[in-house]
Design a protein around this nucleic acid. Structure first.
Lengths: 153, 153
DNA sequence: CCGCCTATGTATAAATG
DNA sequence: TCATTTATACATAGGCG
């Protein structure tokens, strides 16, 4: 994101990808550490590189305790964590994106480099998509477990 | 870290702490998302606030799969950080439905009509799933539109 | 891989609406 | 609470050793 922002998407060049991974991993773990201290919250962070290397972090508690807490999380909490915050609600997103859309469209006619506005919006959507997909995957797993439980009882 | 850098340490003022948590959480999840895409790596991130709220994210794979990989990792780092018995119990949590859904099971036994309760729980999840899937579809559609706009201009 | 450097994009503390 | 603004601190791409 420096000297020409990095577009979101897999970095194809292997060496660049490794370098970026190393740098961003450092930054990510630092942020995880900071929020755990500053805000006094439990964090568990696990990263696997393609080569199979593993990095992990947890603040305050041992990572297994955080994972246990996560895995034992009652469904009400699951539901909570999944419910959309106002900020993420469709309506807000729609308005937000439409606004960006409009301004992008308007700007396009005045500017030589219209693509930037539009691509920023696409990246935002990609971020929302990834989070949504993550929740969906989690919910699907949870649903499977519930059904297994139901069968067993 | 702006207008007078934040010293590392728990932010004592409750309101500031919440505000900082909200902002940094957004940033942290964004970073986790970015590194998972840019560097094509598996990431699992779990955060619990003191009030018990849960946020989690994983890229590419389901978070359970990343956790399973973590717990089955022969890596010495994991072996060191997680004692064997603890590790086994976590694997049980992941693989055994009954252990994983203690809360649901407990609730069922307290009720006179367990089946109904269970089906309600599944319906709850279905509801969440439907919302999430709907949002996902919407986002995907929106992304397509944006890209068309992008192409057309 | 590990640092260091610099220019620049990003994150965010604090204030304000 | 929630969004915006603004000023600054921080993160990091690209380059070099």
């Amino acid at each position: 994101m420096v000297r020409g922002k990095t577009p979101i998407g897999k970095i194809e060049n292997y060496d660049y990808r490794l370098t970026t991974f190393s740098k961003r991993r450092t930054g990510l773990f630092k942020k995880a550490y900071e929020i755990s201290i500053l805000c006094d919250v439990d964090v568990a962070l696990i990263v696997f590189s393609h080569s199979g290397n593993l990095w992990h972090f947890s603040g305050h508690k041992r990572i297994e305790d955080v994972l246990t807490k996560f895995l034992s999380c009652p469904d009400t909490q699951v539901a909570k964590s999944v419910s959309l915050s106002k900020k993420e609600s469709l309506v807000d997103l729609l308005q937000n994106v439409k606004h960006q859309d409009d301004s992008a469209e308007g700007a396009l006619r005045k500017q030589q480099n219209p693509n930037e506005n539009s691509s920023v919006a696409v990246e935002d959507i990609d971020f929302q998509l990834a989070r949504c997909q993550s929740r969906l995957n989690y919910l699907k797993g949870f649903r499977r477990k519930l059904q297994h439980l139901h069968r067993d009882l």
